[in-house]
Nucleic acid binder design. Structure first.
Lengths: 238, 238
DNA sequence: GGCGGTCAAATTGAATTCAAAATACAGTAT
DNA sequence: ATACTGTATTTTGAATTCAATTTGACCGCC
């Protein structure tokens, strides 16, 4: 059988003119890493499953070089594991790790609460209030996926307002892992209702600019979420 | 001039027999990443300096592939920055970031304190006592470098005993960056003396198994260290 | 049928190659 | 002398190639 002489495809010239393109082209490995991250977080790549480089290269239409660079970055983040000479696999969600994760997140939320009271402007508090209102609406209409996304944005926005960039980055990393656990856990309706209420308490403390109360409410919220996720995890694997 | 026809040097066969070798061979990129990390932390690669891939490849005697993989991992850790099409450079130490760093570290130390009182065995407390005694001795004899290393080990050991693996990992990452800042700051004798005393307070609270006191002491220790480092940083760049 | 053993094919780790971009350099006009 | 332009050189991004290892098929044997 005659093989098509697959010709070398060099990186395309950086044409400034492409209309909707981002301001400056990302490296291929960054694009691949981001797509992989998504696939792992959403469970599109099952936990524990082997990753075939060839398959992913074909799926992403890149050579092995940027794919392998991306895998090494994700391995450093703990989302995949590299088995020497035997490729990569998606890291399994370990309940013990999830427990530890929420313990650390709670501590960071505590800090966030204190900083927020110090640093949030009235306008920013109004912004949070609006986000909260939108979430209540989504809760009322039972839009689970949208609520979840709004929730992520709210938490991220709170940390942004807290104004500590290291905190923002650390929480980002931990949130990645928590997202995975959350997908795996598949939380119950009861916890959802509770969670929406806790957000109300958090907002009230923020509006009152009561650092102790806000910090406590955020820590408690994270503790309860962690407990529910762990519960869901152990339930879902019998 | 006749160029020596540099021949391809394949990876060496994994001979099990090599005596002092580690149990399983590390990938080249891991070795390179670790060496690079060291060079950045110790200031061997100056902050802000451009990194030439060629030079480093020659220094490490590896090809560009594993070197570039390592650079991407370090970039993800924030130790280097990748400028598109213009190579890598060592991330500068930013005082604002250092401030944020210590704020987050203090929060994590607070958690660590609570966990330690819950989880440390008597034997582990004795171990910490011994480490502390050794540090006092090093302080008395003014062995600055050794004291610093013992200090790192003590803090790491405390977090290990706290028994939260996520906490251990996060602190590890932050400690990397703090180490850089500390080198750049070059702390004063006065702070060293203070620090040794604060360790005494920490040990006492741990021995008394007083969670609130231990947590507070660890937070305070981190806060003061942070203040001193920031002070040193701003002083050293006039 | 199940168990080792051998060899071919596939996969991985890392060096090399090739094209695009950035940089250095020379010559020219101002 | 300085700024500017076009060209050669170097460096970077990513595809490809090559060697070592793992995987898997096939086979004889019990």
């Amino acid at each position: 059988m005659t093989e098509m002489p697959t010709l070398r495809r060099p990186r395309p010239a950086a044409d400034e003119a492409s209309p909707g393109a981002p301001l400056r082209r990302l490296s291929l490995y960054q694009v691949v890493a981001e797509r992989l991250r998504h696939m792992v977080l959403e469970g599109e790549l099952a936990a524990g499953s082997r990753i075939s480089e060839k398959r992913l290269c074909e799926a992403f239409e890149v050579s092995r070089t940027p794919l392998r660079e991306a895998l090494k970055v994700l391995a450093n983040e703990g989302l995949v594991e590299l088995l020497p000479n035997r490729g990569a696999q998606v890291t399994a969600v370990d309940p013990a790790e999830v427990h530890d994760l929420f313990e650390v997140m709670a501590a960071l939320e505590g800090l966030s609460g204190h900083l927020l009271v110090e640093r949030a402007s009235d306008a920013e508090i109004a912004e949070i209030r609006a986000l909260h209102a939108r979430m209540l609406e989504l809760h009322r209409r039972q839009r689970r996926q949208e609520y979840f996304e709004a929730n992520q944005r709210l938490h991220r926005r709170l940390t942004e307002i807290a104004g500590n960039r290291v905190l923002l980055e650390q929480q980002g990393q931990l949130t990645h892992k928590i997202t995975r656990a959350r997908y795996a856990a598949n939380l119950q309706q009861g916890r959802w209702d509770e969670s929406a209420q806790e957000h109300g308490v958090i907002l009230a403390a923020l509006e009152a600019r009561d650092a102790a109360a806000l910090s406590a409410a955020m820590v408690e919220h994270m503790r309860r979420t962690g407990a529910a996720v762990l519960d869901g995890l152990t339930a879902s694997r019998r």
